[in-house]
Deep mutational scan, measured.
Amino acid sequence: MDVFMKGLSKAKEGVVAAAEKTKQGVAEAAGKTKEGVLYVGSKTKEGVVHGVATVAEKTKEQVTNVGGAVVTGVTAVAQKTVEGAGSIAAATGFVKKDQLGKNEEGAPQEGILEDMPVDPDNEAYEMPSEEGYQDYEPEA
Rank of each mutant, 00 (worst) to 15 (best):
D2R: 01
V3E: 00
K6H: 02
K6C: 02
G7S: 15
L8V: 04
E13D: 05
G14S: 14
V15N: 00
V16T: 08
V16M: 15
A17I: 05
E20N: 11
E20V: 03
E20A: 13
K21W: 08
K23M: 15
G25M: 12
V26I: 15
V26K: 00
G31L: 12
G31R: 10
E35P: 01
E35M: 14
V37N: 00
V37A: 06
L38F: 11
L38I: 03
T44A: 07
T44H: 02
K45E: 00
V49C: 14
V49K: 13
V55Y: 13
E57D: 06
E57C: 04
K58N: 05
K58L: 13
Q62W: 06
Q62R: 12
T64H: 13
N65H: 05
V66G: 02
G67F: 05
G68L: 12
A69G: 06
V70T: 02
T72G: 11
G73D: 02
G73K: 12
G73I: 07
V74G: 02
T75C: 10
T75I: 06
A78V: 11
K80F: 06
T81L: 11
T81I: 06
V82I: 06
V82G: 02
V82L: 13
E83M: 10
G84V: 14
A85S: 04
G86I: 14
S87E: 11
I88A: 03
I88D: 04
A89R: 07
A91C: 08
A91Y: 13
G93F: 08
G93E: 05
K96I: 03
K97M: 08
D98W: 12
Q99M: 13
Q99K: 02
L100T: 06
K102P: 14
P108C: 11
Q109M: 04
I112K: 04
E114G: 11
D115M: 08
P117V: 10
D119R: 01
P120E: 08
D121R: 04
N122V: 09
N122H: 07
E123Q: 11
A124S: 08
E126G: 12
P128K: 05
P128N: 08
S129C: 08
S129D: 10
Y133V: 05
Y133P: 12
Q134M: 11
Q134I: 11
Y136E: 03
P138M: 07
